[in-house]
């Protein structure tokens, strides 16, 4: 397991060295959500009703935007081949990469969510549920997204291609996350949706790790 921490430390050092990346992701996220009142209108009740959907769709897009640099740098400078040759299972490298990706995108998105709750007139209780869904949902996005990032290594126009591959796979996460906050808003029990979201996350762990590892092996051939 300590290899996992070494790899994770390496990834975090790399990610934090250009700290601006996660700032850009949060910047995109906040700016994109702020655009909607201009589009939909400032009517607080409308904004409150669509707030969960707005926050989640933009969180999903923000997470997806930062996927292409997950393996790209290592693929180009050849360190991917070296990492594959290490005795540690490749899935461990993928786990470290995904954790680093989540820490540099999922977490900042959660940090920005309260600010957006104020903009979108979301009350405190719903914000709490929203943060819970983000905490459970964004790791699943990183895991599924990692498969897309690994698949497009070496492809022409990889960045755009990733969105076409992973967005359909993000839909279940979006549905249950927004469904959960929606239920909270209407004072319905919402733990059921959160449980299913957790199940999707648990399902995404093996799927994400194995499929990404397989894709990385194909890419490095």
């Amino acid at each position: 397991m300590n290899r996992y921490w070494e790899l994770l430390k390496r990834e975090l050092r790399l990610a934090l060295r250009q700290g601006s990346d996660s700032m850009m992701v949060v910047g995109f996220f906040v700016l994109a959500v702020i655009l909607f009142p201009f589009g939909i209108g400032p009517e607080p009740s409308i904004l409150a009703r669509v707030a969960p959907g707005l926050v989640w769709v933009n969180a999903l897009l923000a997470a997806m935007l930062s996927l292409d640099r997950l393996y790209q740098a290592d693929y180009e400078d050849g360190s991917l081949e070296l990492l594959i040759l290490t005795p540690a299972p490749l899935e461990l490298l993928v786990a470290a990469k995904v954790t680093a990706h989540w820490l540099t995108t999922g977490l900042p998105l959660m940090a920005a969510a309260p600010l957006l709750a104020i903009f979108l007139n979301l009350n405190a209780y719903d914000l709490g549920v929203l943060l819970l869904t983000l905490a459970v949902g964004t790791p699943a996005l990183s895991l599924i997204g990692s498969v897309g990032a690994a698949l497009v290594l070496g492809a022409r126009r990889g960045g755009v291609l990733i969105s076409l591959l992973v967005l359909p796979l993000f839909i279940p996460v979006l549905i249950f996350a927004v469904g959960c906050v929606d239920a909270a808003q209407h004072a319905f029990p919402w733990t059921g949706q959160l449980a299913i979201l957790g199940a999707i996350l648990l399902g995404a762990v093996p799927l994400g790790l194995y499929a990404s590892a397989a894709a990385l092996r194909q890419a490095a051939e």
């Binding site: 498969v147 698949l151 497009v152 492809a155 591959l165 359909p168 796979l169 839909i171 279940p172 549905i175 249950f176 999707i200 399902g203 799927l207 499929a211 397989a214 894709a215 194909q218 890419a219 051939e221």
Partner: peptide
């Protein structure tokens, strides 16, 4: 090779998508 992996990953997700 890449699309083969995507097809299998996609196929695993189809029931989840249908359910959701």
């Amino acid at each position: 090779k890449a699309s083969a992996i995507l097809a299998v990953v996609g196929w695993v997700n189809v029931p989840i998508i249908k359910f959701s």
